[in-house]
């Protein structure tokens, strides 16, 4: 896994003509963004923040996507527990 990551970093750096340190920096930024969105969406689904605040923090598209996913998961759980 470590070797695979190292190879990928090298390839991304070469493909974008960037130093490997910047590839790591960008990866960290993107990774943090995804983790942050999960935190916000979990707070929204848990009722800790309202819809407007969630939209403000992660955007309408993400909020609508998670609402759609939530409906599907709720339907499945309801079916599974009552079938």
């Amino acid at each position: 896994m470590a070797a695979e990551i190292s190879d990928r970093v090298r390839e991304i750096a070469e493909a974008n003509d960037l130093p490997e340190s910047e590839v790591f920096e960008r990866a960290l930024e993107r990774g943090l963004e995804i983790l942050w969105e999960d935190v916000v969406l979990r707070r929204y689904l848990g009722g800790e923040i309202d819809r407007d605040e969630a939209i403000e923090q992660v955007g309408r598209t993400e909020v609508e996507r998670v609402e759609r996913e939530q409906r599907i998961v709720e339907e499945d759980v309801d079916w599974g527990l009552n079938a």
């Binding site: 969105e37 999960d38 979990r42 929204y44 689904l45 998670v66 996913e69 599907i72 998961v73 759980v77």
Partner: peptide
Amino acid sequence: FTTDAVIERG
């Protein structure tokens, strides 16, 4: 299809 936030809700 879904994120861990939705899984946790499930």
